[in-house]
Amino acid sequence: MRIGHNFAENFSFAAVMLRLVRTLRRNPTDAEYLLWKHLRRRQLAGFRFRRQHPVGSFVSDFACLEARLIVELDGSQHVEQSNYDLRRDAYLRARGFRVLRFWNSDVIARTARVLDTIFEALHRPDMDGRFD
């Protein structure tokens, strides 16, 4: 491997990504905090989830690498950035991940239903999409 300009760019990108991930982990939304209480330490069906896990140039809210499942929590700002979310989801799917999206308000008001949906997706490799 030749070390040069690309190495410096990659190193710089990795450093920026690491800072971003650490910031996101230190400042979770209420919905992220609540869901993480149920996903951490293999509490959901024994599957290990990672919080604020980088995938390429994106950071997923929650990722289960074993099941190739990403769980995204969306606040009101996502209504205005639906095109970005579509591109992001396509990028993640192209890398073999399934993506589930939940509104923050659903995580808070219907926690058990959200957890049931995630549980089902962990056991059904064809399940993908938005929680309704």
Rank of each mutant, 00 (worst) to 15 (best):
M1K: 05
M1A: 09
M1Q: 08
M1C: 10
R2V: 15
I3A: 13
I3H: 15
G4V: 10
G4P: 06
G4D: 14
H5P: 07
N6K: 10
F7Y: 14
F7A: 12
A8C: 12
E9S: 05
F11P: 00
F13N: 06
A14W: 03
A15I: 04
V16D: 10
M17F: 07
M17T: 03
L18S: 14
R19W: 02
V21Q: 14
V21H: 01
R22P: 05
T23H: 11
L24V: 01
R25N: 07
N27G: 07
N27P: 04
N27M: 04
P28R: 02
T29P: 07
D30S: 12
D30N: 10
E32V: 03
E32G: 13
E32K: 01
E32C: 13
Y33T: 08
L34Q: 10
L34K: 11
L35G: 03
W36N: 15
W36G: 15
K37V: 00
H38N: 09
H38A: 11
L39M: 14
R40Q: 14
R42Y: 09
Q43R: 15
L44S: 14
L44T: 06
A45F: 10
A45Y: 02
G46T: 05
F47K: 07
F47T: 01
R48W: 08
R48V: 07
F49V: 04
R50T: 03
R51N: 03
Q52R: 00
Q52L: 13
H53P: 00
G56Q: 07
S57Y: 11
S57G: 10
V59M: 10
V59W: 09
S60N: 03
D61T: 07
F62H: 09
F62W: 01
F62A: 08
A63S: 13
L65Q: 08
E66Y: 06
A67C: 02
R68P: 00
R68G: 02
L69S: 10
I70T: 04
D74Y: 07
S76W: 05
Q77H: 11
Q77M: 12
E80I: 00
E80N: 14
N83F: 13
Y84H: 15
D85F: 08
D89Q: 12
A90H: 04
A94N: 13
R95T: 02
G96Y: 08
F97H: 10
R98W: 06
R98P: 12
V99I: 04
L100P: 00
R101C: 12
R101L: 05
F102D: 01
W103L: 11
N104R: 01
S105A: 11
D106F: 09
D106V: 03
D106H: 11
D106A: 14
D106Q: 10
V107S: 08
V107Q: 02
A109V: 01
R110W: 03
T111S: 12
T111Q: 14
A112L: 09
R113L: 09
R113D: 15
V114N: 07
L115Y: 11
D116L: 07
D116N: 13
T117R: 14
I118G: 10
E120R: 13
E120T: 11
A121T: 08
L122A: 07
R124H: 13
R124W: 00
R124V: 09
P125G: 06
D126P: 00
M127G: 00
D128K: 07
G129E: 06
G129W: 07
R130Q: 07
R130S: 09
F131H: 05
F131Q: 01
